[in-house]
Computed example of a mutant assay.
Amino acid sequence: MSTPIASFDLTQRPPRSPRSRLGGYAILPRMLDKGRAVLAGKNGEYHYDCGLDQHIIKFIGFDPAALSKELAAGKGDGEILEWLNANAKTPRTPWEIEAWSTYQDKRGPDSDAETLGFFAEKVGQFTKTREDIKTWFDFLDLDDHVSFGGKA
């Protein structure tokens, strides 16, 4: 089932959480939302093929420009997943996908002082009191929530 591109307005709501899964893959639904929003000219401050997206692009092995063409054709999530599975340079088994997605879900800033400082600074832009923001996904969910009117 195709979804109209115009429905992806990321100036009105955030993309899906990076924790959302499609075919077991973390990050993928968020990337699809951003890609559709870019095509509709409604991506706001969100970027397609960004650093976060690069994690899944490299893991599966696909061309983000080719994926964008599939999105422009109006393909739904299931159709996109089929396309990715058929065009993956590195086909993955279910256990590889699960392990990778679990790792991504728990991935926090590197332990070097520069990265930890950057992470703390970014989190500090939204809250000075929350101690539960430990991973990059935690940060992105917080950013999305606060950016659309929620309280930290």
Rank of each mutant, 00 (worst) to 15 (best):
G41L: 10
G41E: 08
I5H: 03
R16V: 00
K89W: 08
L140S: 11
G44N: 12
A152Y: 09
T11S: 15
D77S: 15
G149C: 10
W83H: 12
S101G: 02
P18I: 01
E79K: 14
Y25P: 06
E98I: 00
A66N: 06
Y48T: 01
Q104N: 12
E114I: 09
A66D: 14
P4R: 00
L116I: 05
L140A: 12
F62T: 06
E70W: 02
D141S: 01
K58S: 14
A88F: 05
I5Q: 03
Y46N: 09
S7W: 02
L22N: 04
I133Q: 13
F139R: 11
V146P: 03
P15F: 08
A6N: 05
A88W: 05
G51K: 11
Y25H: 10
L32Q: 09
A26C: 15
L32H: 10
C50R: 10
A152G: 14
I27T: 00
T90A: 10
I133E: 13
P64S: 08
G41C: 11
A120V: 00
T93W: 07
D141Y: 01
E70D: 04
Q12D: 08
Q54S: 14
K122M: 09
I27Q: 02
G74H: 11
M1N: 06
G24I: 03
D132H: 07
D9M: 07
R92A: 05
D138F: 06
I27Y: 02
E131N: 10
T102C: 01
G44E: 10
I60R: 03
K128V: 12
D63S: 13
I97G: 01
D49K: 07
G78V: 04
F148H: 15
V146H: 01
T127I: 06
R92M: 06
S68Y: 05
K75L: 14
S17F: 11
A152M: 10
A65P: 03
T3F: 02
T135M: 08
P4F: 00
P109F: 05
A65F: 04
A40I: 01
I57F: 06
V146K: 02
Q125K: 15
P29Y: 08
T129G: 09
F59N: 07
L32P: 08
A73V: 02
D141C: 00
D112Y: 06
W136C: 05
F119G: 09
F139G: 03
G150C: 07
L140W: 14
D110N: 15
F59W: 11
L28K: 06
G150E: 09
V38E: 13
S111P: 02
K134N: 15
L71F: 01
M31W: 05
L32K: 10
Q12W: 00
I133W: 11
K134P: 09
P109L: 00
E70G: 02
K34P: 10
N85T: 06
G51Q: 12
L81H: 09
F126N: 01
S147H: 13
F8Q: 03
Y46F: 15
K151A: 09
N87F: 05
W95K: 11
A73D: 08
L52G: 13
W136T: 05
L67D: 02
K122P: 00
E70H: 05
G51V: 13
G23M: 09
S111K: 14
D33C: 12
A99R: 13
E70K: 13
G124W: 04
D33T: 04
A113M: 12
Q104L: 15
G74W: 11
I5E: 02
L22S: 05
F119N: 11
H47E: 14
E82T: 15
